[in-house]
Structures are given as structure tokens and as C-alpha cells.
Design a binder for these strands. Structure first.
Lengths: 76, 76
DNA sequence: GCCATATGTAACATATGTTACTCTTTTAGA
DNA sequence: TCTAAAAGAGTAACATATGTTACATATGGC
């Protein structure tokens, strides 16, 4: 699932570590979610969205994430 | 975390099983989330919100869930 | 009361999100 | 270039969400 964390982090001028501290998770969690390694829990998603003053839907891109292959390394 | 699943389910006239099938989870998952047994994953939350045509924030009540005790049995 | 449907719930197994620890790589600045 | 901050990442351990299966309870119509 793609997301706009990096963008909103830039807008609010926060490092991954600062963001992590503000929402009470580790920097690795922010790093992994921002990099799309895994999806956030709904709590973490909400805390981030609230901090950035946007909705969860604005921060994370759900739309057509079901039928893609999250990497292009499998393409011919 | 409280939620309005039961209400929106009633509005859309769906049983737990029908809702479950529409969002590709089991009835137990719907039942457990609706009953507040655990929080949904962000995917399930999104699918429900999309089906009911509301935002995740409208469907689930995050606001002051940190400092409550999720039951009123502890009240005097 | 009897029956069908809807809902609540338990034990266990599996999948996924999060942390702690550590290390490497990239980026920005003097 | 050298340095430090920032970001990317691997692993193991743990917490939580979800599925499977089965059974119990409620509710309404006959």
C-alpha cells in the first residue's frame, strides 16, 4: 500500500525519528510503513493522520492495491 | 475502540455474514470487530468504510480511546 | 412449542504488525 | 573529503488480527 507519509513529513518538517516519537512507535516502524514494507495498524494510521491533520484515506492509498504485485521485479 | 458497524449494517440491511462475504473476511471477524474484541486491520477497516460509503474515521471512533477502560463494569 | 435465521463465543492455528538491537547506506554541511 | 545526521534494513521475539470449527443463545414466524 502506497502512502504520502514522506510528503506530509516534509511539510511538517519532521524526521522519521521525530514522527515516531510523536506517535509513540519506533523509528523502524515509521521507516517500514513509509517504505511500504507492511501496513500500519489502524491505531498507528490514525495517529499519523491526526498529527498531519488529514484523513487516513488521504494519507494512505488503498484504491487498487489488491491486484498489483508491489514490486516490478516480477515483470518480464 | 468503539464503532458504528452495527448501525451501518442496519442501514444497508446486511447480516454479519453478508457483510463478511462482501469484504472477504469471515463472519467471526465481522462479529469480533463489531463487538470490539479487537481492532480491524487497515484493509478491513477500509473495505467496510468503502462499502458503507463513509470514511474510516466515521465508522470507527478513535478519539479518546487511550484512557478509557472499554467496559463500564469498573464504574462505581 | 418448534424451526430457521442471526448473533455471540471458545480453543487453537496462522498471518501480520511492532519492538529491540544492530548494522549499513545515503544525504547534507563544514 | 570528512563527519554527523538521517534513512534503509536484517533478525528474533512478541503482540495482535484473522481464520477454522464448533457450539450456544437469541429472535421471530409458523
Amino acid at each position: 500500500m502506497k502512502n504520502n507519509i514522506r510528503i506530509y513529513r516534509a511539510i511538517h518538517n519532521l524526521t522519521q525519528e521525530e514522527l515516531a516519537r510523536k506517535i509513540s512507535v519506533t523509528r523502524k516502524t515509521v521507516n517500514s510503513i513509509e517504505g511500504g514494507k507492511y501496513n500500519p495498524s489502524i491505531d498507528v494510521a490514525y495517529k499519523m493522520a491526526k498529527l498531519f491533520n488529514v484523513t487516513i484515506e488521504e494519507l494512505f492509498c488503498f484504491e487498487d492495491e489488491e491486484n498489483n504485485n508491489e514490486e516490478d521485479e516480477s515483470l518480464p
